[in-house]
Design a protein around this nucleic acid. Structure first.
Length: 345
DNA sequence: TCGGCATACATGAATTATCC
DNA sequence: GGATAATTCATGTATGCCGA
């Protein structure tokens, strides 16, 4: 779409005023406030043109204009000048993570809090799944005949469990021995490395004829069969910030937003969508159809370790959020979380 | 002559004030 | 508290001016 410089200036003025006030923006306001040296009538003509091509809309005939989702998308893609975070802001964010130690849950919760506090929107962080972290300990608990509870503990403290059936009835003593043996050979490996290692060890064991090893490996093979059931965790901070935005404060909208937060699966699906992406992504209004709330935008970025994505973090707020500030904030926080987790996981 | 822009004016909707 | 009037603010359109 080709817009003249004048059209772009007027569109930019409408959108920046709307982001600031959440109110429709009139031609006279633009004429007075933005020093474009154009009369309100001229600005009205341009606004009518921008409305015709779908970038602006008018809530009612005697109101000013507000940007459409399409207008905001055009603004973000073509006109937005992203502001860099200041050194002081970066330092403040970095310092917030100090003293949290190696507790991944605390680090992610803090990331969510930082995103919420710094943006005055809602901060969300999708935790890494078990398959992306390294194993520290595997524990077997005998439940009853042939039924065993397997507990997986990752190096970063993520715990998953699974109940398996084994053809032999094993005593708790035997299970403890297996656990110690498997800790020795599987510790510090990722889930895919674990599976490979078990196959290698089974191959070796064929020549060793060690009954204990054979049982332990069979048991571990069963434990890791079909993967480890993964419960995805999501950290959400700053729910109350919704109340600061008049366009989201009607009862029905708030109900829908809080429902999405209660049913975490909706937020998880939304964050999952950007797992495969690189860098910061913006979903404006209906582009994030999963939340099902009009007037909401989501800005996300995956955090990584090397080339593999561990999880996603982001900000949920009104479509009129200050994208020039939110985008670098999400990007920097994701880079910082990647950096911190790389040392732990 | 034509296009861009400004002024003037009629109109519509929301908000505020006033009255009962 | 509800109905009505007055005010405010933003719009669209007709018309005129000016420069290319």
């Amino acid at each position: 779409m080709k817009l003249s410089e004048r059209d772009k200036k007027i569109l930019h003025a409408v959108i920046s005023d709307y982001i600031e006030t959440a109110e429709p923006v009139g031609s006279r306001t633009i004429s007075k406030k933005h020093g474009l040296n154009l009369s309100p009538a001229t600005i009205r003509n341009v606004m009518a043109d921008l409305e015709e091509i779908g970038l602006l809309t008018q809530p009612h005939t005697s109101a000013g204009r507000i940007p459409t989702e399409y207008g905001l998308r055009f603004y973000v893609d073509s006109m937005l000048k992203v502001k860099r975070l200041s050194r002081a802001e970066k330092e403040k964010i970095r310092n917030s993570f100090k003293g949290l130690g190696f507790d991944v849950a605390n680090i992610l919760k803090e990331a969510s809090r930082i995103l919420s506090m710094a943006s005055q929107h809602i901060g969300v962080v999708l935790a890494p799944t078990f398959s992306t972290v390294r194993l520290k300990h595997i524990e077997f608990l005998r439940l009853r005949d042939n039924l065993i509870l397997v507990i997986f503990i990752s190096k970063s403290g993520i715990v998953q469990h699974k109940v398996i059936q084994f053809e032999e009835d094993l005593s708790q003593d035997e299970l403890d021995k297996f656990s110690r043996y498997l800790d020795d050979i599987l510790s510090d490996l990722t889930l895919s490395e674990v599976k490979q290692k078990i196959l290698e060890e089974m191959e070796k064991e064929k020549t060793a004829f060690d009954e204990m090893l054979s049982k332990a490996l069979k048991l571990s093979k069963r434990a890791f069969q079909n993967g480890v059931e993964e419960e995805k965790d999501v950290y959400i901070e700053g729910h109350a910030n919704i109340l600061n935005y008049p366009e989201l404060s009607d009862i029905e909208t708030m109900k829908a937003i809080f429902k999405a937060f209660e049913e975490k699966s909706i937020i998880i699906k939304l964050l999952d969508k950007s797992m495969s992406a690189t860098g910061v992504q913006t979903f404006i209004g209906s582009e994030n159809e999963l939340i099902g709330v009009e007037g909401c935008s989501v800005v996300t970025s995956p955090y990584t370790k090397g080339s593999s994505t561990l999880g996603t973090l982001g900000i949920i707020g009104p479509t009129r959020m200050n994208y020039s500030r939110v985008i670098p904030l999400v990007g920097y926080t994701a880079r910082l979380v990647s950096e911190i987790l790389a040392e732990i996981l």
